[in-house]
Design a protein around this nucleic acid. Structure first.
Lengths: 112, 112
DNA sequence: TTAATATATGAGTATATATTCATATTTAAT
DNA sequence: ATTAAATATGAATATATACTCATATATTAA
């Protein structure tokens, strides 16, 4: 039996075994962002290309204000960023790691 | 510029570029499971070891009925399974892929 | 069969969330 | 300065969700 060694090695490789309050909250927030179909569609679109608010609304058949509200949500979590061009704001992804999580889940869902 | 080649390669590697209704729903459900702090704590515990309902409740300082309700949620999504031993039900993880998503998010949150 | 233990279930309540409508803000053009 | 276009914001509403209490079910032992 090598329990102590194993535990030691495991905790070296994965120092997140005990979930502190802060980590727990961050993780839940991240997944909450990915748990709504509207936000998933927006993020999935932004994973393919930069879009203005109106472009997102048209492409996904959503109201502009719905898109704006969700973009604010995603922006607060720093999952998206934007650049301004005149009165138009172009949004794009800003967290490759979270986009990877989304892509993995989509891939998994597609193949089951 | 190799855009066409890149696109072709990307769509070969990732055949899930357009999200159908069913995939979208599955993905949102999966992330919804991971978006609640109570469920995260339960899944995180079950990623380490098999536990009875009461063990989970004690370990996480939750009411038994709260744990039962959340386990039902997770069982419906086939994220956990259980075996019976007398009157005791031992729950364990049942979807390694989703556990990987959780572990990645925890790791990411811990290191930012 | 009765009692004890472990777990599940249903109803009620409180909170969170997504969407919509109305309107405000910002930028650029005339 | 006005106007138009793009986006953001706040309030209201409807729905979803998590938790708790009371109670039901299931398994085992006496």
């Amino acid at each position: 039996m090598h329990n102590e060694e194993n535990n030691e090695k495991k905790s070296t490789m994965n120092p997140c075994e005990q979930l502190d309050e802060e980590t727990l909250f961050m993780v839940s927030q991240t997944f909450k962002a990915l748990s709504d179909t509207t936000r998933i569609r927006i993020l999935h679109l932004l994973s393919q290309r930069e879009c203005s608010v109106n472009e997102i609304a048209e492409e996904l058949s959503l109201l502009q204000t719905t898109v704006s509200h969700q973009l604010r949500f995603l922006k607060n979590l720093r999952l998206v960023k934007f650049r301004r061009a005149g009165t138009t704001l172009y949004y794009s992804q800003d967290d490759q790691h979270v986009m990877d999580l989304l892509q993995q889940a989509i891939h998994h869902a597609c193949h089951d």
